[in-house]
Design a binder for these strands. Structure first.
Ligand SMILES: [Mn+2]
Ligand SMILES: [Mn+2]
Ligand SMILES: [Zn+2]
Ligand SMILES: [Zn+2]
Lengths: 138, 138
DNA sequence: ATAAGTATTGCAACAATAGTGCATTAACTG
DNA sequence: CAGTTAATGCACTATTGTTGCAATACTTAT
């Protein structure tokens, strides 16, 4: 069980108060989160600070961004030793249309995609929409 | 070769002047387009009218929306007898990071995705980013 | 310990996209 | 032609994301 400070230091991020709080929030949450969720939770913190905190986390490879098709960027913790690019990861994401939560399916890698002649793939984003496990069994 | 009017009527859309012009523009363009591209092209037309024209086209199944990960929704003509949902289609989309054009790869269907227990898929969006055929051969 | 330099934060402002309310105009129906 | 419905134009709003800059906090060298 690593401390919050250790996690930040391992990713070469200086552990400031705000960064520790944001990291704690991300760690506790099992699904991906948006900036506005953080803004609502830390309602006396500055919007820009939260924005730049997440930006730093993304740049340092601590979290990855997810475009789940809702128009709002989501963020989730990277796996340990994760090799994901800055923009996306190789695993697929699930967006539940009922609870509106976005989940990283880290075990489910994106299958091989074959493209027409001349197209060169650099990055792939695969988002499945539907009903998540929690919502389907309740 | 169908006339523009026929295409609209087949989709139960009344052929107004603006709708015909927008449809013509979409038909001529081989790649997906954004609202701002339409706004720039029809620079004396009202933004809202263009917005609602596209919205009507989407609702009537004439075009489908594409979330290509750029943050700007793109629109492209549906194939004939296309069974695509309102939001997305079953084929994959390619976004070129060089020319910034988004292409429908209508022949390339999204492969079967298996999900963890309890997750129910309703819709899948797969976007590949990279270099398109035109940009890779020039 | 102090001063200088660097990193972080807070505030204000901006831009782009998306969307709504409502009055006006055009088209259609009897 | 009058009455009804549909489409358009204008103004305004909301949200997300982003930047500039001044004020703090933190670090490092004298
Ligand atoms: Mn993920
Ligand atoms: Mn398409
Ligand atoms: Zn759910
Ligand atoms: Zn290209």
């Amino acid at each position: 069980m690593k401390t919050l400070e250790k996690i930040l230091e391992n990713n070469k991020v200086k552990p400031t108060a705000m960064r520790l709080l944001v990291l704690q929030f991300i760690l506790r949450k099992k699904t991906a989160l948006s900036l506005s969720q953080l803004e609502n939770y830390f309602d006396n913190a500055d919007r820009t600070t939260i924005y730049r905190t997440i930006k730093t986390f993304v740049e340092k490879g601590l979290v990855h961004q997810i475009d789940d098709g809702t128009g709002v960027t989501k963020y989730a913790l990277c796996e340990e030793n994760c090799e994901c690019e800055i923009e996306t990861d190789l695993h697929l994401h699930f967006h539940c249309t009922k609870c509106e939560e976005t989940t990283c399916l880290t075990e489910h890698k994106i299958p091989q995609i074959n493209l027409p002649e001349g197209f060169i793939a650099e990055n792939i984003n695969l988002v499945v929409k539907g009903i998540c496990d929690k919502c389907s069994t309740s």
